[in-house]
Amino acid sequence: MKVHFLTENALEALRTNLRGNLRHYADGTNDWIYDYFGADNPFLEFKLDFPSFQLNFNENDDTGTIDIKNAIILYSAMKSLTDTEATDERLWAGMCHYDFWDFLQVRYKVNNPRELIESNIKTRYFFAHGKRRSLFTNPLAKLWWCGRLTYDETRSDPFELTKYVDKYFSSASVPLFSNNYMANKQITVGLLSALKHLEENGYDMTHRKQKLLEATKYLNVLGGTYILDYFTSEEIEEKVIKYMKSLKGASFSTTSVQNEPLTIT
């Protein structure tokens, strides 16, 4: 399967003239793009071939759950991308405007030009923020990077942590992944492993997003003292578990868990 990226000139032209083209983002096809550029083809084939895959969206499903399913599908197929290639706006904007135009139309129920908001289209089809944050606001880049940072080949199911993220994905994917230190996969795996371990052992995760933000805040503070990149995922996991247990008001569903030894096996 071939995917397509936008040329640099085409990307800038579409971004610059977004307001004038806004109504077309409700079109059923992307034919308007070819009409807009005339004889100049705005798309080029990406150099790599990928296994064929399809992204799906069912409006009756939980958004976070279906996004995680699609993250697994997309990352499994496009795992051969390098991190450098996967930070290139031209690739994700190209795929949004070409290969997955139909998917985005269904994903965001875009069918009435009057409902279109320029800032929303900029976020969905381009990089609307700084590069790091945009990787987790662009809907396709977000799927790939979620897979990249949570895939753990040491587990019997390498996507075990990816599936765990669906508990946070709808409301907390941006604060979770857009921190600079979360670009280190070992840190992400360590953090999620800690939260999963705590939850499975009775830690009260009723306010899940709040607990996640508390854990990421702790890593930010820890990063002011230590170079987090030097820690293994196991060390990050142990530090997060210890910190979360120390919080005032931390509670467990069983008393036996409170006395559980900290050492992770």
Rank of each mutant, 00 (worst) to 15 (best):
M1W: 03
A10K: 02
L14T: 03
L14Q: 07
R15H: 10
G20D: 12
A26I: 12
D27P: 02
G28V: 14
G28P: 04
T29Q: 08
D31F: 06
D31S: 10
D31C: 09
Y34D: 09
Y34V: 05
P42G: 09
F46R: 04
P51Q: 12
S52T: 09
F53R: 08
F57R: 13
N60C: 11
D61T: 14
D62S: 03
G64R: 08
T65P: 06
T65G: 14
T65Q: 10
D67K: 03
K69A: 10
A71I: 01
S76H: 01
M78D: 02
S80D: 04
D83C: 15
D83K: 13
T84K: 10
A86S: 02
E89V: 08
D99P: 00
D99S: 04
F100E: 00
W101Q: 01
F103D: 06
R107D: 11
P113E: 08
R114T: 11
T123F: 09
T123V: 13
Y125L: 13
Y125H: 05
F126M: 11
K131F: 00
R133Q: 07
R133Y: 00
L143I: 02
C146Y: 02
C146G: 12
C146H: 09
T150E: 03
Y151Q: 09
S156F: 00
D157T: 01
E160C: 04
E160D: 06
K163G: 04
K163W: 11
S171G: 13
S178I: 09
N180M: 15
Y181F: 15
N184D: 15
L191Y: 10
L192A: 15
L195R: 01
R208T: 00
Q210K: 07
T216G: 03
I227Y: 02
I227V: 13
L228H: 05
E234W: 02
I236P: 05
E237V: 13
E237T: 15
K248E: 05
K248F: 07
G249D: 07
T255F: 09
T255Y: 10
V257G: 07
N259Y: 10
